[in-house]
Design a binder for these strands. Structure first.
Lengths: 328, 328
DNA sequence: ACAGATCTTGCAAACGTTGCCACAATCTTG
DNA sequence: CAAGATTGTGGCAACGTTTGCAAGATCTGT
């Protein structure tokens, strides 16, 4: 295809090895380096990544695995990753598992070969699977904590606690939590956070929802309403907005009759009506920070050294218009 | 890293070449093929993609270039691409240009080397640039038409015409079109579609908006209102929803005082209040179809043969609650 | 049973790069 | 000024795979 290292070498009158060194920051005299760089630019030479990968095992790719690109949460994380990678010369290899854990395991295995490091967004895979499939020296896990791997996440507990306190302060005595997919790490953590309700004398019912999507919100809305709760906390905003729509179309007023709190603060949360009170998490920062962590890991190459880094980003309740004082 | 072709060869008792042929569908006896496949599975052998790419030039990657991942339009296209690629053994290389055309040109050049084919979503790059930078044999352009390249897009004209007719039928005599980014292909086409207004005796004002985002909708809303138009058509839904929010917060009632029509029918369009009347385009299908077209191109490898394929997908107006009869 | 066709397999070269080793040239230091 | 340290460069092998070529094995038809 394009010009090779040999072409550049001939043009400058040096050996291929020297060109290689000049291009990748090896030891070369300033004069030759300049000459090589000039010639390379003139010829439009780009080092062949495949050849480079073959010899030193570094592909120059970073793999990102997400469960569902239709979920705006992950696209915001993706944006963060992408923006961080933009300034490096790593390429982004993206895989969407479509919530299929079997395929996720397979893809994890495949991606390892095509990338130097992996960013894994997998709420549903078991810790044990993750530990088995991922190399601690080249992996960063997003949105959950796995002890033996580097992680970037937000702690879901404080956010949920704030949400419960917010509802309690508004006089709600009975709330419903609409849970996320079974096996989800953050769902499990959020349930822990719910424990605070008891201390506040608030009753909690848990309602299950198979998938955390807008459509599933319709069913979940009916279920949550049936519990008799006056306040609802949803696993995520998509679910919350779906419920909101369902409740409004059933003639239930939000927040006069029922208060709703979402999770994640996706862009839609401030565009629906009423605007959604939600627990905001810095999604783009998670992506950005995870990419940065991975690149640090790859640069250091200290093997499976010290204890893996766990980065916790802050999240807090953003109060908008979907919560209000309890009826009566 | 993993086992190599030699390891498998030893395990079976054949030569590396035979293993290679067995793995990639060459001529081998059924018996040896089975033996090789068995051993490969047992050892967990995966052909090294870098080595393969080095020798035959095929990386096994497909590159996708989008202008902005924060725009849900593109993430839906991305989802379509990703879902189609899922069934193949191509990997997806994703690049977000962040609306920067200079970087887009550079990335296009870089990506070519790392992928077998390119899917390009670039509304702002000039046709000439695209023709120069893209190889017709390995490129599919999305959301626009460039004569000499394969394209998958929707024709923006009929949708815009339907929108104008819809407003005219509701009695609107003066409408504003909030334009997209300068240089955008689909924006130019949409303006062509606006010509129908004259035939219907409807006056059209065009308002410029630098970027097609939710935030820009605030400014655009004010500008559009200042024209005195009673109906507004926006370049896309994000802009439309931003305007909607602005208008409502200024005390303008939608659709009683002003009607708004968006473009694209992103998920948010049916979640805002009032729900947005919009021109729907099958975004996921565009992605899916573009990926399919590219894979066909790569399989055929007929060089720069016949005239490039142009696929036009249908789009039509989806009437929701943001349009109504003109005031008075 | 023999010549020729067909099928199956191994050998070796090649893809473009990097990294080790050796050597020459220049610089330091006593 | 000599001896050692340092710096810059070229040669060569290697990464893991594919592929053209040729040789061996098996089969066909007479």
């Amino acid at each position: 295809m394009g010009p090779t290292v040999t072409d550049v070498a001939k043009a400058v009158g040096v050996s291929p090895s020297t060109v290689s060194r000049a291009m990748s920051g090896g030891i070369v005299s300033p004069a030759t380096r300049e000459a090589v760089l000039d010639a390379a630019a003139k010829l439009g030479y780009q080092p062949n990544r495949a050849a480079r990968a073959l010899i030193n095992g570094r592909t120059g790719n970073v793999g990102l695995l997400v469960p569902d690109l239709e979920n705006p949460y992950y696209t915001e994380v993706l944006k963060g990753v992408s923006m961080h990678l933009r300034r490096t010369d790593y390429h982004l290899l993206l895989a969407d598992s479509d919530e299929d854990t079997a395929w996720e395991r397979e893809m994890l295995h495949t991606l390892r070969q095509s990338s130097d490091g992996l960013l894994i967004c997998s709420p549903r895979l078991a810790d044990a699977d993750l530990v088995t499939l991922a190399d601690p020296a080249t992996t960063v896990v997003l949105n959950r904590i796995v002890d033996s791997l580097a992680c970037v996440t937000i702690d879901p507990v404080p956010g949920i606690q704030q949400a419960v306190q917010h509802l309690a302060a508004l006089g709600h005595r009975h709330i419903a939590y609409v849970a996320g997919p079974p096996g989800s790490w953050s769902d499990a953590r959020r349930r822990e956070g719910l424990a605070i309700a008891e201390e506040l004398g608030v009753k909690v019912d848990v309602v299950q929802s198979a998938t955390p999507t807008f459509d599933a919100g319709t069913l979940a809305g009916d279920l949550a309403l049936a519990t008799g709760a006056s306040g609802i906390i949803a696993f995520n905003d998509l679910l919350a907005i779906g419920m909101l729509n369902r409740l409004l179309s059933r003639g239930v007023s939000v927040p006069a009759d029922v208060s709703i709190i979402g999770n994640d603060d996706i862009a839609m949360a401030s565009m629906c009506a009423p605007k959604l009170t939600t627990i905001s998490s810095p999604k783009e920062r998670i992506g950005q920070s995870a990419a940065a962590t991975l690149l640090r890991l790859l640069k250091d190459r200290t093997g499976a050294s010290s204890t893996p880094e766990h980065i916790l980003l802050p999240a807090g309740l953003t109060v908008r218009a979907s919560t209000g004082v309890a009826p009566q």
